[in-house]
Amino acid sequence: MPADSGSIAKVDLDHRGRSWYVDKAVGGLVFVGGVSAIVFVMGIFVFISREGFGFVFGTLDIGEFLTSIEWRPTSENNPRYGALALIAGTAAVTGLAMLVAVPFSLGAAIFIAEFATGRTREGLKVLVELLAAIPSVVWGFIGLSIMSPLIIDTFDQPVGVGVLNSGVILGLMAAPIMTTIAEDALKAVPDSYREAAEAMGATRWQVVWQVVLPAGRNGLVAALLLGVGRGFGETMAVLMASGHAINIPTSPFDSVRALTATIAAELGDAPRGSEHYQALFTLGIFLFVITFLINLAADFAVRRGAPRG
């Protein structure tokens, strides 16, 4: 506070008030938080690269890695590191998951954003958020204990875990977050478009199909890509529901093994620094690059969809 009370208007520029320190401190904290997030991501990347790249540039045959279906890392005399079956497993499960998740999440997003009002809408949004918060191990549990017997009974199959089971589970799992993002995309479509179309006599459905969905296209693509990213990166539920057998799937009932599940299941047994250990890190790098590219694409889609000017 100014020492001389003679002039009220005089501002004391030499003494800093408490709020100045609070301001600086909070600013500093936010800065440290932001920087550390970047540092951590870089650190993680450097770490997995260091563990995996030596192998990539050393003994690993990248051609074999990408084209062979033989993953026999623990074989005594002839270890093989072909990731193709794992990649195919992950791709099959993620693909089926999207077949399940896209109609669910798009339908839910359209209903919440365009048709539901008042309490229904708020209730549904809370419900979707609750669903998004279910831990993946619970989904895996549902896959094992509910989906699996269901598949065995309905389709008369010897085993209930596999592409179908894990794809459906993963689809249900990805649907809530995809719903939320898709709903945001629809809500971002200016209401003046809807009003214009309705004033020309369009029904609510015509407005949705012909105006809102095309206008929100980029945001919807982003929702899809984030779902795909989620599918690629998910581990626990897939580990539990996929059957975990190395296999190029030819039917939805086949057991498969996912990239993530392989790492999770084998890393504990692989001696540190061994070829096997490094091969698992190579899988990690591969996953990292793929999810990074997917997120980048999603980001790009959102940016392109942002209103100009």
Partner: peptide, 11 residues
């Protein structure tokens, strides 16, 4: 038909 205050062509 109706014309609005702000031009609102569809995207």
């Amino acid at each position: 038909g109706m014309v609005f205050q702000r031009p609102n062509p569809l995207p």
